[in-house]
């Protein structure tokens, strides 16, 4: 009871939670993706307000923030997955290597081949492990012949750290794997089409700590070749895997910076409150 009262008292203390623009440096040199003044509306709801952020090459950028803060929405803007929602409207500018991805003439199919996505819940196709990985290369015509396709499948599974576990049952259904294996299968499926950027939407939220550790190690390895943006609810995870961290609050990008700085020396009061566990 006493602790509870303290908490309430602390909350009632005046805090400078006013938003006066994103704290920290949103731009970096030689970025892979740049977003400027992005606003997202779901019907009448203003989900993301004026977010500008650069995403660097071969870095892991983590997006953190309390539920409903817009971090997943922002992530889904980066490969136009929001297009599938009828009432969703995106304004502002998002560029992938100087190409405006919301350009009217831009085709989303090649965009999504360049910017792959891993989802919160492992979602393998109800097909064999092999076909799960081979599907992307097949539809994009990445392999000349069967041998090359076999190579892509094996390579992707190797990079996802799943090869040794599934090499003897490539033709069994992917849905028969454990949750952690399924998620690594989904990552392998994404890297099989050799994207430039991988978006991960809370990839470990449905997994146990051991599977989570494996995926985190995998993310660290993938950084050599890919740019990764990861949404996470776990601040420890953000601290472990990412180089830069962006903190979202109620649709606004409050603060962005080197992960180390964000967690040890947050500049904004909201960031500090969230990181120290005072809310969220």
């Amino acid at each position: 009871m006493l602790a509870m009262n303290n908490l309430i008292e602390e909350r009632q203390q005046p805090v400078s939670t006013e938003f006066t623009g994103t704290v920290g440096d949103i731009s970096i040199s030689n970025p892979r993706m740049t977003t400027r003044n992005v606003d997202v509306h779901y019907g009448d709801k203003h989900a993301i307000m004026d977010v500008s952020l650069d995403i660097g090459r071969h870095e892991v950028l983590s997006l953190i923030g309390p539920s409903g803060c817009g971090k997943s929405t922002f992530l889904r803007c980066l490969n136009r997955m929001n297009d599938t929602i009828d009432i969703c409207r995106v304004t502002g500018q998002i560029k992938l290597d100087d190409q405006d991805i919301y350009d009217k003439n831009l085709d989303v199919v090649p965009l999504r081949a360049q910017v792959g996505m891993v989802f919160q819940k492992p979602n393998p196709f109800p097909k064999s492990i092999y076909d799960n990985i081979a599907y992307g290369p097949r539809i994009h015509g990445l392999a000349e012949d069967q041998t090359e396709l076999d190579g892509i499948v094996e390579g992707s599974l190797h990079r996802a750290g799943l090869w040794d576990e599934v090499k003897d049952r490539l033709h069994q259904p992917g849905t028969g794997l454990s949750g952690g294996q399924q998620q690594r299968l989904c990552i392998a499926r994404t890297i099989a089409v050799s994207p430039e950027v991988i978006l991960m939407d809370e990839p470990c939220s449905a997994l146990d700590p051991i599977a989570t550790a494996k995926i985190e190690a995998l993310i660290d390895e993938l950084r050599q070749n890919f740019t990764i943006v990861i949404v996470t609810h776990s601040m420890q995870q953000a601290a472990r895997v990412s180089q830069r961290t962006a903190y979202f609050h109620l649709g606004r990008l409050i603060e962005v910076g080197q992960t180390e700085d964000i967690f040890t020396n947050p500049q904004h009061k909201l960031t500090e409150d969230y990181i120290t566990g005072r809310f969220g």
Partner: peptide, 20 residues
């Protein structure tokens, strides 16, 4: 989630519908 998975690796709408 199946549709998202297919679209996420760049399947077109037709491919998503007819393959998955």
């Amino acid at each position: 989630s199946i549709r998202e998975a297919a679209m996420g690796i760049g399947a077109s709408k037709m491919q998503t519908i007819f393959h998955h």
